[in-house]
Structure formats: C-alpha cells, structure tokens
C-alpha cells in the first residue's frame, strides 16, 4: 500500500478520534464523517482514501469504543503507523481488520504529507519522501491467525465449528 502521511502526536485518544457526541450511531459511513475531528477538525476534508495516519506513543488511548478504528477504516485510511498502541485500540483494530503497525522509528521519521510505501507481509515501510526504510516485526502467531481468518468473528466461527 502507498499513501500520504497525516501526522499526529503522542497519546491521541479515542475521544479525539471519534468524539462521544457522534456515538449515537454504529453506522461506519456516519462515523467516518467525524474521523479525527477533535484532533484536527479539517482531517476529513484533507484525507484521501489510501492515506495513512502516523502518530507517536499510546495511539488510541482512553475509551474502548470500537467506533474509533471503525471511523478510521470507513474514512478509507489504509493503515495506522504509531510508536505504540493503547491495548484496547490494538485489539479492536486487529478484530475489525484495520492494519496497524507499531514502529517508533518510522513514526518519528514521517512528516505531514510524506509519501509512505508499506509492505505488510514483508514487514517493511519505506518513506519515499525521506528515502528511509524501516523493518517492523510481524504479529505473533496467535494474532496472525485472527488476521488470516479475516477478523475475530470469522476466527470464532471456525472455533465454534470445531
């Protein structure tokens, strides 16, 4: 995947990703209209499908609302690259099939508007603007099994059948 970076700081919380005033719906398209609104009110106007969110440490901290990764995915973001992820956001993203990459070096290297090229299977991120390349570790086999099943519910259906 290849896309333009939108860079945020540390501790981006789920209230900023999707403010609670929009949580009276679970429709992905409705949530996508307000993606990142309280971190950057102009984000939805600037972002294009296939773009990439880049942030510092502890991305997605706060509430357990799955509406946060749903809003990011439905807004067409290809991936989130961060220094680290808050644990509930991490689980939610894996469970709904939003690609996420924890790579502090790549996150620190990227500036707003940089062109990123990511090969998830190979674990490689190249910043085409700075020319720097980064390797990120693969997920553990347990998490990989959920991803390969097509998300947690597909994985669980497999478990129920066994």
């Amino acid at each position: 995947m290849r896309g333009k970076a939108h860079v945020f700081g540390n501790d981006v919380n789920t209230d900023e990703i999707i403010p609670a005033r929009y949580l009276n719906t679970i429709e992905p398209a409705a949530l996508a209209k307000h993606c990142m609104e309280d971190a950057d009110a102009e984000f939805v106007k600037k972002a294009r499908p296939g773009d990439i969110i880049v942030a510092g440490e502890n991305f997605g901290c706060g509430s357990s609302r799955e509406h946060a990764p749903i809003a990011i995915k439905a807004a067409g973001m290809a991936c989130v690259v961060a220094g680290s992820f808050a644990r509930i956001f991490f689980r939610n993203a894996i469970n709904i099939g939003l690609p996420i990459i924890a790579c502090p070096e790549a996150a620190a290297d990227a500036s707003d508007g940089d062109e990123l090229d990511i090969d998830l299977a190979a674990g490689r991120l190249k910043n085409l603007t700075t020319g720097n390349s980064f390797a990120f570790p693969p997920f553990t086999s347990e998490i990989q099994a959920i991803i390969e099943a097509g998300g947690l519910m597909a994985f669980v259906k497999g478990q129920v059948r066994k």
Binding site: S64, R65, E66, N92, N95, L152, M153, V156, V160
Partner: peptide, 18 residues
Amino acid sequence: AGVGSTDLAAVMAIGKAW
C-alpha cells in the same frame, strides 16, 4: 479488562477470550 465490541461479540458466542 476492557475490550471493544467485536471482542464482546466473540465472548458472547463462546464464553472465552484470547
């Protein structure tokens, strides 16, 4: 521990959590 909605769905289905 807190989780998201899909995790809850999985637990409601099988009574177990990863």
